[in-house]
Amino acid sequence: MNFAQDRYTLTQSQKMMVFILSMSLYGLSNMITELLPSVYLGPIEFSVEYFAFIPLTLCILFHPLYAAIGAALGEVIFGEIMLGQFGGLGELEKFISFSLAMYIAGTMVTDPRNKRQVGTAAMIGVIIHQAISSIVDILKVWVGVDELEAVPGLVESVVVIEGFSFLNDVLFSGILFALIPTVYLVPRLYGKIEPLLGMKPRDTTNKYSLKEIIGPRLVVVGVLLAGAAFLFEFLSNSGLNLIEWELDLGPAFIWISLLVAFFITCLIIVYTLKKKKKTIHDKTEDRRISS
């Protein structure tokens, strides 16, 4: 049992292969979906949001972590930077939510030949991703518009629009471009695509768990970032009052506090990225030595 699990651990090159495969394929599909027009039926938009079946298939067949991160990076590079639509920091949220959702979907499957399991995982992956992104969109309007409650009808309309697009994405894109193709492709590719990358097919005994990425560090960073966001909100609100009351001190104060806060946030992000990479690297080294 233990032996079987050891045998599946990937070398660094194999991880890179999974990463590149997932990145280039999902990136390509992203470019195609960006260029496809969407059809409007009244206020209802029928658009192909994304070809979610590609990262889902790869996450189910290979190690979900590398496939998920690769796909998310592919989306950013091919779908955004190369088309000149890179949203900068906004992409960070997409990156995290997408890779998390795909990773969870990948971990749910223990047997790629079991169609019911694959189908459930595919739908849950899409639902998680869409739920996170609609919540973030609602929050964006909430942060971006000052005194949201004072504007009649805006809260309801944002929630309705986001809820509607959530349902549309899950039911339309989710079923047609995630559920059906994944259920079709996974059993067909299982055992065929792995030898091309020089690895054994994933068997039913190895499982991945969420613990691998959601460690205490991630939780702490998330809490810190959320705290920082609320701090900014608070600063901006009090900042407006400052401008009204004392013109000399106000702007400089906001200016400095904002700058300091941003630098701290950026430092945290850079630091965690570095550290994460380091730990991943250390782990692979350990595995290679022990195997």
């Binding site: 090159s13 194999q14 890179m16 292969m17 999974v18 590149i20 495969l21 280039s24 394929l25 390509l28 599909s29 195609i32 192909v48 070809f51 079946f53 590609i54 298939t57 047609l176 471009f177 193709p181 492709l185 067909r188 590719l189 065929k192 695509i193 091309l196 990358l197 020089g198």
Partner: peptide, 25 residues
């Protein structure tokens, strides 16, 4: 068209995985 667009990814998945291996090597 949607069906063909999805089905075309099946051969592409296989050929890209070969290419990924060559790249990493």
């Amino acid at each position: 068209f949607c069906k063909v667009a999805v089905l075309s990814f099946y051969p592409l998945l296989l050929s890209t995985s070969k290419r990924a291996r060559t790249t990493v090597e």
